[in-house]
């Protein structure tokens, strides 16, 4: 065998391995989406029906079932509220830390890393008790507050990194022109770090939209979000895989959108702090 054909074979083998990996990664997602579009009988047919006329029956069933729309709008409100709140508060804090060279910024760095690892399940009991005392239990606002706090550390971390790149001369010249601190922050710095804000926003939305344990414990049948609602389907209706995969697909929709529109932001957010240094 010449070294050239050997090389080509190696490249071929490499592609084959990568494609095999991609199939393994995508197949479960493909299965979820196609099952949600299958006619009822085909949804559990074994051997599986690979080719079928897609129908939105399962989606229609879900749409008119129980309180799907209520849970959907709960999810939308909670996720949007948490995103706006958390990104705004984090941007303010990051600006304070970067611009005023806050003393103890090393403590802050250590603190954010520690806060990032606190699992929801550890918060669930004390926040449940606290929210009961404060009357925030079973409210969407209470859930929004927890999600704001949970993602603050990550958001400050990301936004701070972007803010450190903004040239100080810009801020200084604005200051000479008589702009107030808040004007400098909102009119000059924020527009410049828009990509950083979008990374923070996407990850906060993802947490609030996907989160399960806190939502399960802190909401009731009026205020619960979609992930909790879909989990109740498993026990209640047992084997209705059409509607279940339809709701699951709806829950996964923002993930698809973010992945295809903002893959680069996602990768920078996921690997933040891991690769540098």
């Amino acid at each position: 065998m010449t070294s050239k054909t050997r090389k080509q074979l190696l490249v071929g083998a490499r592609y084959l391995a990568i494609i095999a990996g991609a199939v393994v990664v995508l197949f479960p997602i493909y299965l979820m989406i196609t099952t949600s579009l299958k006619p009822r009988v085909a949804a559990f047919a074994i051997p599986p029906v690979w080719f079928f006329v897609p129908t939105v029956n399962s989606y229609v069933t879900v749409l008119f079932a129980d309180n799907f729309l209520r849970f959907f709008f709960n999810s939308v409100q909670v996720a949007l509220g948490a995103t706006v709140g958390s990104v705004l508060i984090a941007a303010l804090a990051a600006y304070g830390i970067v611009r005023f060279r806050f003393r103890g910024s090393r403590v802050f760095v250590a603190g954010t890393l520690v806060l990032k690892m606190i699992p929801e399940v550890i918060l669930v009991i004390p926040v449940f008790l606290l929210w009961n005392t404060l009357g925030l239990i079973n409210t969407r606002f209470g859930l929004v507050l927890v999600y704001i706090a949970l993602n603050l550390a990550f958001n400050i971390w990301i936004i701070r990194a972007f803010m450190m790149e903004v040239p100080r001369e810009l801020e200084q010249s604005a200051e000479i022109d008589g702009c107030s601190e808040f004007t400098i922050f909102s009119r000059i710095v924020l527009p410049l770090i828009a990509p950083g804000l979008s990374v923070a926003a996407i990850f906060t939305f993802r947490l609030a939209w996907n989160e399960f344990v806190l939502s399960l414990a802190l909401t009731n049948r009026f205020t619960r979000t979609l992930p909790v609602a879909v989990s109740m389907y498993i026990t209640d209706v047992g084997v209705q895989w059409g509607p279940i995969t339809a709701i699951a697909t709806v829950i996964a929709l923002p993930a698809f959108i973010f992945t295809f529109l903002a893959a680069r932001s996602l990768i920078s957010g996921l690997t933040a702090g891991a690769v540098k240094g």
Binding site: V25, L26, R206, N210, F212, P227, A255, F256, T259
Partner: peptide, 8 residues
């Protein structure tokens, strides 16, 4: 994709 999709 698998990282972004909800654990549920």
């Amino acid at each position: 994709l698998p990282i972004m999709i909800a654990p549920v």
